[in-house]
């Protein structure tokens, strides 16, 4: 990896850290001045899961049948077990079996 690229990586990581700390410290800073409205709270509450949806959907649209079926399997395992590792492993197992033996 060239040197300026790894410098960019470090800058990115530290800017991420700055953005994160800003949100952690900002709440206490603001709280004595402004009380967030219910509408704004709802906005904040729905944003993280919407971002996940926005990552997943375009990713899957470009994929084949193996990936779609494995995605459904990973989702089902997550719903049933509420366990991230189990869901990840079953998704990986499903996609490698489907790719190599079913939809070649």
């Amino acid at each position: 990896m060239p040197d300026n690229q790894s410098l960019l990586v470090f800058i990115t990581i530290f800017c991420m850290a700055g953005a994160t700390y800003f949100t952690r410290a900002g709440g206490l800073f603001i709280v004595s001045r402004i009380n967030p409205s219910p509408r704004f709270r709802a906005f904040l509450a729905h944003m993280p899961s919407s971002i996940l949806v926005a990552i997943i959907v375009p990713n899957l649209m470009g994929e084949g049948a193996s990936e779609l079926m494995a995605a459904i399997i990973a989702g089902l395992v997550a719903v049933l077990t509420r366990n991230l590792i189990l869901s990840l492993l079953s998704g990986l197992l499903a996609v490698s079996l489907l790719r190599n033996f079913v939809f070649i």
Partner: peptide, 20 residues
Amino acid sequence: VLGLDFAFTAVFIALLTFFW
């Protein structure tokens, strides 16, 4: 071969179900 390229999608789907 291990399907590791699919790992991200699987992780995000699992995280999403926890938000339900």
